[in-house]
Design a binder for these strands. Sequence first.
DNA 1: GTCTATACCGGGATAGAC
DNA 2: GTCTATCCCGGTATAGAC
Lengths: 208, 208
Amino acid sequence: MKGSLLPSIQTSKKRPTAPETRQRILDAAAHLFKDAGYAAVSLRGIADMAGMKAGSVYYHFKSKEEIVLEVLNTGIERVHDAVQSSYDDARESRSGSRIISECVKAHLNTLLAHSDYTSANVRIYGQVPQTVQLDAKIVRRKYESLWDEILGSVKAAGQLNETVDLRLFRLMLIGSLNATLEWFDPEHGNVEELANGYLEILLNGLME
Amino acid sequence: MKGSLLPSIQTSKKRPTAPETRQRILDAAAHLFKDAGYAAVSLRGIADMAGMKAGSVYYHFKSKEEIVLEVLNTGIERVHDAVQSSYDDARESRSGSRIISECVKAHLNTLLAHSDYTSANVRIYGQVPQTVQLDAKIVRRKYESLWDEILGSVKAAGQLNETVDLRLFRLMLIGSLNATLEWFDPEHGNVEELANGYLEILLNGLME
DNA sequence: GTCTATACCGGGATAGAC
DNA sequence: GTCTATCCCGGTATAGAC
């Protein structure tokens, strides 16, 4: 499941060409998108950062939409992989709070420190054309399912407050984690501390 | 403190003209901005929804930036007023959870059901030019201060978990509330139920 | 106070030389 | 595989008639 199954946006079969240049374009696009949003980023700007002229980009991609779709999907694939891997490791512990903690840290680290693709996804998903959103939704949903599986397994082990609505909690959790993008600066703050602070509130609650 | 004190963006002194038409333009802009983002909305689109031609808008506003700045500030003023009012009412109860609950409900109701201006602010703040962001930051900070006051008063009454970092909690709280904009549909769901679900997790925590 | 007309710019995208 | 040149469109903003 690399970049496969992209219904509406035509991703020209298999690109036989220059995987390295392709990457440079995608890296540049992800970096610019996460800072400036979708519409504000021009192909000229992307090309410039990738060290080429705008026209040359079209040898590698059919359109701006094809570029952004690949950025979007790569972004989710990266958090998905990171969280899946943390989940696989932590589930042996059979500790619900341990499992959730590790997965939250994986999500935050990928989002804030490791991947422009993931932060670009969070930042611009709501700004891209509907057709792109529709295509990107497939991979997104798989990521949501992963979290439902994680939280479901903890609940099944009887380690969760019975009254908590899992879907609602997942939405709140991912939403609050993604919202850190608006204010957290990884240059200044420490992601581990951030995660611990959030987890304390989420796991134990606010009230005395 | 209506729309006063706007340093960088020149808001032409005092508009002696047609407050009603002005409102129509701002209403249209807020509505379009909250759905499509900043760059994707054109002055032609705003004018169209306000029932006029693009050129006419410039009789009322100097630029797109002046329009968006006013939308942004109005959006914060509205949540601020709503939350302040709920806070004033609920503080008599001297119940920390009651106070927080009412203020959270006021924020969510304004954001999701009552004000396009507030949702526009949350949605597009990160997309507008730096100059506009800088000007809009003043009003934003006052709103953050209000929440610091609310949470601080509850903590001072000894009703909060001692270990909770108030600034971090404020960021997490507002972030998670604002993130509901991405998925919650007020036509389908009930804001009161949403608020109750969030509050249960935030106040009591997730773990058994 | 709103209109039409238009200037001006920068966007995405294509064609063809190299 | 990248370049230059160019097309076409739609954006913001202005000028001047009404």
